[in-house]
Amino acid sequence: MAAAVALESLSAPLIDSHCHIVFRNFDEDLEEVAQRWRDAGVGRLLHACVEPSEIPAIRALADRFPELRYSVGVHPLDPEHWAPDTQQVLREAAQADPRVVAIGELGLDLFRDKNLEQQLAMLRPQLDLAVELDLPVIIHCRDAAEPMLRELRDRADRGACPKGVMHCWSGTPEEMQGFLELGLYISFSGNVTFPKATDTHACAQAVPAERFLVETDCPFLAPVPRRGKRNEPSYVMAVAQRVAELRQDSLQAVALQSTSNACALFGPALHNV
């Protein structure tokens, strides 16, 4: 209850810049979940896509919930969903709906799998597509900062590095600096509330004000005090509150800044929240 009251005085609605409400564990109570995010002051949701077969269902959610925008892409841990025509499938989906505001969730993940070359073979055409369509990318990067920085720096040297965000940031301040130098944003999720996430805390303190976002990555990574339970968009307030504490700033200021930053990155489709 206290969280909902705290947000009533905010002059800017929060944006959950990364969520997955298409997942089956929202089937039974999605209307109640939506009411909670509205009551909590969440004005926009950006729904990330992990593989092409999700796109029709995510589009249907955008029809159902007018505050939802979405991306199209293939997650690095889902190579079975990459086919020779996948780039074209993503291109057509992005061009067919102005509510598509990003390419992703793409990236590299060497925590679970070590198939770097296979992941790069999916990553590169998605980065190319983002540049072609002038859309930002949503980057998943876990235990893979070095190869990701190498890839993006090479593209920057060729003038082919898209803008974008490092979602659910869990890297070190030094790694963060490398991505900031490439013009990327840094997004904090529920893990910023975890007591032992000291690197993430340091990054939240150090990131420039104009370069951070907040997200839930729901249904994963529910913030303290709901850790271990299903996450949902209304809980983005807990993320914003912890970021505010770490930055010794007000919740109001973090809400205003993160909303402004999300709109700057993802464009006009996120405005008027």
Score class of each variant (00 low, 15 high):
residue 206 A to C: 06
residue 152 L to D: 10
residue 225 P to M: 13
residue 164 G to R: 11
residue 242 R to F: 03
residue 128 D to C: 11
residue 177 Q to A: 13
residue 118 Q to L: 15
residue 67 E to V: 09
residue 205 Q to F: 00
residue 235 Y to T: 02
residue 82 W to P: 08
residue 99 R to Q: 14
residue 13 P to F: 02
residue 230 R to L: 12
residue 34 A to T: 01
residue 218 C to E: 01
residue 149 L to G: 10
residue 119 Q to N: 09
residue 30 L to H: 08
residue 89 V to E: 13
residue 246 L to D: 07
residue 30 L to T: 04
residue 18 H to V: 11
residue 70 Y to Q: 04
residue 13 P to A: 07
residue 84 P to C: 11
residue 240 A to M: 08
residue 171 G to H: 05
residue 129 L to I: 12
residue 103 I to Q: 05
residue 100 V to D: 07
residue 78 D to Q: 13
residue 161 C to R: 07
residue 169 W to G: 00
residue 243 V to C: 03
residue 12 A to T: 13
residue 83 A to V: 03
residue 121 A to G: 10
residue 150 R to Q: 14
residue 50 V to Y: 10
residue 41 G to S: 02
residue 243 V to M: 02
residue 193 T to L: 10
residue 251 L to I: 11
residue 104 G to R: 00
residue 259 T to H: 10
residue 197 A to N: 11
residue 191 N to M: 09
residue 126 Q to A: 08
residue 11 S to P: 00
residue 113 D to C: 00
residue 6 A to G: 08
residue 28 E to H: 12
residue 7 L to A: 14
residue 62 A to K: 02
residue 81 H to E: 12
residue 212 F to V: 13
residue 161 C to F: 09
residue 187 S to P: 04
residue 58 I to R: 01
residue 206 A to N: 08
residue 232 E to H: 01
residue 115 N to R: 15
residue 51 E to K: 14
residue 248 Q to G: 10
residue 264 A to Q: 13
